[in-house]
Nucleic acid binder design. Structure first.
Length: 375
DNA sequence: GATCATGATTGAGA
DNA sequence: TCTCAATCATGATC
């Protein structure tokens, strides 16, 4: 890709002798002039030709030194004049030699840098969230599944999912647009700089290694901008995710069916409404909620029932009747209408004064259904 | 917007 | 670790 610039005839010095001005590279001027095909005297020997050559060198150096002070048009014209100057190959050779020497010090400065760990983290996160990489909804699906596993699947949860997905897709779209812009800008800028270096290589030696180094610098700069973009994209995803997953912010009532199942169990075990771990798991499965949600529900229910038994009496009677009806139908048919699948300890209207045994005097087995069936 | 209902959280107690 | 009790935060209803 990188074109080797015309550096022929500008090889390194053989290390012998000093140039006219005492500069170690100046002897190249001699060598170049000694091999001039036009057969002219190389000068630098104290003769008139030598004086002329010095004037030429002085002239060309002066022109180079002052070129930046001139207008663009003047500079262009001067550049052309310099390119055609008869001393240009010699000067070029000297510059090559100097560069060869000074270049040694920077050879070890461009070792391959290890990949930025922060960038790796950001990349991984964007990939996991489904923002980077192929669009497959992986991150969205993960977030959705996490949300649904921590809460009940309400009918409008699919609406939330689509909302989350559309917002994530927006973020993804913005991210890719910006990324494309950065990459395009990087490419354009790199091409521009490379062209500039090629142009400059006509008047000064520019090695391919130098061009590579410059390209690497440009890429590093653009990479840091990309890191910022990735960082802000990650933040946006995190905010979206926390909003979507924050159960407290997005509290949803359990489905009617789930509440029915829980109430049924509660009132049919009113004398000891402490479901065992297995019972909780079964209830959770039936209701499509988590075990901890079942525990929360029973905790709240016990407290609120105890606080206001009168208010819950009607509800209690209703569920007791349902349970009794279910039990009777269960005797008539092999299919039990009792959807809880648990045995009932109360086929008659609930009789409870709200004083369940507390932790201070626990029931025989407050976390086991065995006790439920014994009372 | 006020009020009630309800799921979640928190701190204390056993 | 579980439960209770208080409280918070949000949804539902009027």
């Amino acid at each position: 890709m990188l074109q080797q610039q015309p550096l022929t005839g500008n090889g390194p010095s053989n290390g012998r002798g000093l140039g006219v001005s005492g500069h170690p590279g100046m002897h190249s001027l001699n060598s170049v002039h000694q091999h001039r095909s036009d057969g002219a005297e190389p000068g630098l020997d104290g003769t008139e030709n030598g004086h002329e050559t010095r004037r030429d060198i002085g002239d060309i150096l002066q022109q180079i030194m002052t070129i930046t002070d001139q207008s663009l048009d003047e500079a262009q014209a001067k550049k052309h004049a310099l390119n055609c100057h008869r001393m240009k190959p010699a000067l070029f050779s000297v510059l090559c030699e100097i560069k060869e020497k000074t270049g040694l010090s920077m050879r070890n400065t461009q070792e391959e840098e290890p990949q930025d760990p922060q960038l790796v983290r950001l990349d991984n996160m964007l990939l996991a969230e489904g923002v980077a990489g192929p669009e497959k909804g992986g991150g969205a699906a993960a977030a959705v599944s996490a949300a649904t596993s921590s809460g009940g699947m309400s009918p409008d949860s699919s609406l939330e999912h689509s909302d989350y997905k559309s917002k994530l897709s927006q973020i993804r779209s913005i991210y890719h647009t910006e990324l494309e812009k950065y990459e395009q800008a990087c490419t354009e800028f790199t091409t521009h700089v490379m062209n500039l270096l090629r142009e400059q290589s006509r008047t000064r030696p520019v090695t391919p290694r130098e061009i590579e180094r410059m390209v690497a610098i440009i890429h590093r700069k653009f990479s840091s901008i990309q890191t910022q973009l990735k960082q802000s994209t990650c933040e946006a995803v995190m905010i979206l995710r926390s909003r979507f997953l924050d159960a407290r912010r997005k509290r949803r009532n359990f489905s009617k069916q789930a509440t029915e199942v829980l109430n049924e169990y509660f009132y049919s075990h009113l004398s000891n409404p402490y479901p065992s771990e297995e019972a909780k798991e079964e209830l959770a499965k039936q209701c499509g909620i988590t075990v901890s949600q079942v525990s929360n529900w029973f905790g709240n229910k016990r407290i609120r029932y105890k606080k206001n038994i009168g208010k819950f009496q009607e509800e209690a009677n209703l569920y007791a009747m349902k349970t009794a009806l279910g039990a009777r139908q269960g005797e008539d048919s092999p299919h039990t209408p009792n959807s809880t699948g648990f045995t009932s300890d109360s086929s008659s209207p609930p009789q409870h004064n709200g004083n369940w045994p507390g932790r201070s005097s626990p029931p025989p087995s407050p976390h086991s259904d065995r006790s439920d069936n014994s009372d």
